[in-house]
Amino acid sequence: MDLRLHFDDGYIVSEELARAVEVAVLLERPLLLKGEPGTGKTLLAVHLARSLGAPFERWQVKSTTKATDGLYTYDAVRRLHDSRFGEGDVSDIGRYIELGPLGRAFRRKERTVVLIDEIDKADPEFPNDLLHELDTMSFTIVETGETIEASVRPIVVITSNNEKELPDAFLRRCVFHWIAFPDRELMARIVRVHHPDVGERLLSAALDAFYRLRAEEGLRKPPSTSELIDWIAALRHAGIEPEALSGRVPPFLGTLLKKEQDVAAVARTTASSRRGYR
């Protein structure tokens, strides 16, 4: 069995990450990805599906999301409403059941890539509620008694921004990978994917300024990959010379820094404005 996965050209993947993906596919366990925002956690699942030619389901988790939402939702209010006004066949509960992303993936005959995005946004108990379904890859619709079992186990990719600690029991079942922030070399390759014809000097100067900015103390939100790509687009569009990037405050700073305090902190040339204590 050839395990090597080949990602398309639009996504640069490190060797360790590729290995983690392979292991997750092989062991049929969910792959849990963590890492700084902008390191391509979400994109991995999209490109994985594309390179496997598999259908893709995305389940965007929000603070109000419940575990069953991904499996199915039962629209009780609509059924009540219908019964009151005599619309449709109310006795057929199935009409009021709608499968969620995970439920649709289970029902499909081919292997699906399911992305459970930002699982840490939900209630702390959320992952535990999913344990059984992810283990057995089956669930029962309580309202109809129907059991939906995956004929082909989907590839589940889960991302977390570390806002909440995930429960141990859940972690034990996952293959875990922390996407480290790309080093300069990898970052240059990533930028070239998005800007194939970027000038060598501009790229080098931009990367210098970018990593210098990231090293700045006390930034609320250090700039990430996506910001760098946007920034370079802005620089090229405006025809900025590479030399202009060597100053303390680079042009289009607002593209890189999204917090007012950060812009102010960098713009403040006197670094010694910290308040001293007695």
């Binding site: 395990l3 360790e16 290995r19 983690a20 292991v23 092989l26 062991l27 141990d168 972690l171 875990f176």
Partner: peptide, 24 residues
């Protein structure tokens, strides 16, 4: 057993870490 490590030492390191470790 399934050969996920590609029979290499570095592969073994990556596989072991992905499976055994759950938090950065």
């Amino acid at each position: 057993l399934a050969g996920a490590h590609g029979h290499g030492f570095l592969g073994f390191y990556h596989v072991a870490r992905a499976v055994l470790v759950h938090r950065e």
